[in-house]
Amino acid sequence: MGWLVLVFDGLLAAALIWLAWQATHTPGLFRSVISFIIFGLLMALAWVRLDAPDIALAEAAIGAGATGALLLSALGRLVATHEEGAPWQERRDLYFWIPAGGALLGLLTLAAWMLPSPGLGEQVQDALPESGVQNPVTAVLLNFRALDTLLEIGVLLLAAIAIWSLGRMPLPSAPAVRSPALPALGRLLFPMFVLVSAYLLWRGSHAPGGAFPAGAVMGAGGILTILAGAQPWLTGSVHGPWRMLLSLGFAAMLALALGVMALGQPFFAYPPGLAGLIVLALELAAGLSIAMSLVALYLAGQPPDHWEGEARGE
């Protein structure tokens, strides 16, 4: 069995390196983007090999789904998709890069090799009963290091605001060439997306899953329905519900972090006994906001205040 694992790792590593090179160094932007999407796909396998199913889930949802959709749609919106000549300017710079890169690689690997990696596994195990959940990753994310997660959800909201601040959507979101299959596919698959994300959310408290993969799946479903031409309630106007939904996760976490102080607890310290319930509520709110943010990132600009009927491919 040992050699099988070794061959598997070797093949995976070789493929990843090759794909990374393809994505960054070969002519043809479309080819680069496709290579990068496959890179994400294989990274999910690498995470599985490294015993990190939580990250594998996120990578599967993000790498294969959301980032792919973002990159492809950006590619479609770029004016010059064709790129002439070599993807980089001078091959002379290799005289610098080969020794420099080699030295960096050697240093990094040597340093990484020397690391004892004591880790915090034991502390996490000890504190797990008090965290309110059984999945250690969820416990770290939503209890021990909840401040990081608060800021992370904040980054998503911030990215959506930043993108809206850059202007309106650059192009109507409906495809230029209409396919009758798309709306049908969207309608057919959307319930599946909702179901799977609800399942992942529920799994999160005791097994890999949780707000992020759930939100990413839900966001992917949202992008699908937009592609299928059903988005009238997603308006950029102040009166629509979208702004509230975008901020829901961030607002809920902040309200909780500050709210517990009214109960005499320090900032972000969950009252004993309520931790499990709080984590679940936070995951629900965060998941919804993550989904909404991903859709906002995909639209690449502030959507119109009113969608016109014709833009929806009806």
């Binding site: 901020s247 961030f250 607002a251 902040l254 972090a257 500050l258 102080m261 607890q265 320090p266 900032f267």
Partner: peptide
């Protein structure tokens, strides 16, 4: 709960709450 904790929580929480309100 100490005064320091409250002040620090205010410095972090208030601008972020404000950002949400200013956006919505």
């Amino acid at each position: 709960m100490s005064q320091a904790n409250t002040l620090m929580a205010v410095l972090v929480g208030v601008p972020l709450v404000g950002a949400i309100i200013a956006f919505v």
